[in-house]
Design a protein around this nucleic acid. Structure first.
Lengths: 127, 127
DNA sequence: CAGGATCCCCTGCGATACTG
DNA sequence: CAGTATCGCAGGGGATCCTG
């Protein structure tokens, strides 16, 4: 979310518009990438979507992740309204994480990335 | 391109398939993200697409980028077959960078990210 | 159980030079 | 012009331990 100073001038002729247009592509894309890129975001989203709700449960389902990282990533996802955190007043406290309905809007993005990724791997390696 | 050890187990029941399915989403997505994420990839792709061909030309068109970074990123893009590097035997040598036709396959991905990014910014900030 | 605190490392990126 | 070399930092993320 610190995409502000990104002042890119991509126009052939340096007109006001080419500059602005460029921004209009780059800024949103970087916003989106900030949300889903990183090593753990996707694994976590998928884990939660598949029914892992409790902290330890999610942690165990994602090999090699540490509690510190999981904690931080879950907070990120929560501030982006992709994950909902619910605390139950039990003894000791229970916390449940679930995907918000909003998270579903990511599907098309993920699908586009996935499709491109699949064919790209073939393109680069296979032949 | 070092996405190998990514062994994620996202299934509720730990079946072979849930594991594999998960991989099938995460690996390609990470492949794709590796190609387009990072601070400079998009700006460079856009700059080149808009007609900036020469190294210095591209460099000047992207505020704050350094030659070192530009050089490295262009190599990355070249190995991913998104950019073509052509050396002309002039005095001194001239080098031209152009997007490959293949780079156009990224359009749908970028569009998806852009669209989601735009509405996400509204969702998070606006109201 | 759900996380925080600490320490530490590694890489991405910036600044500033310098070559063929 | 088209880059490479060197230095250096900051931050993301790992390992380990600790608390309410």
């Amino acid at each position: 979310m610190k995409t502000e100073e990104l002042t890119v001038d991509c126009g052939k002729e340096v007109t006001e518009n080419s500059h602005t247009d460029c921004h209009k592509v780059i800024m949103p894309v970087r916003d989106a990438l900030d949300v889903i890129s990183g090593k753990w975001k996707l694994p976590i989203i998928i884990a939660v979507s598949r029914g892992h709700k409790r902290f330890r449960d999610i942690e165990r389902s994602i090999p090699k992740i540490t509690s510190k990282v999981l904690s931080k990533e879950l907070k990120d996802l929560e501030t982006h309204k992709l994950v909902k955190r619910t605390v139950y007043d039990t003894q000791p406290v229970t916390v449940e994480y679930t995907l918000t309905p909003y998270a579903a809007t990511l599907d098309s993005v993920i699908l586009a990335l996935q499709k491109w990724g699949i064919q790209h791997r073939k393109k680069i390696l296979g032949k």
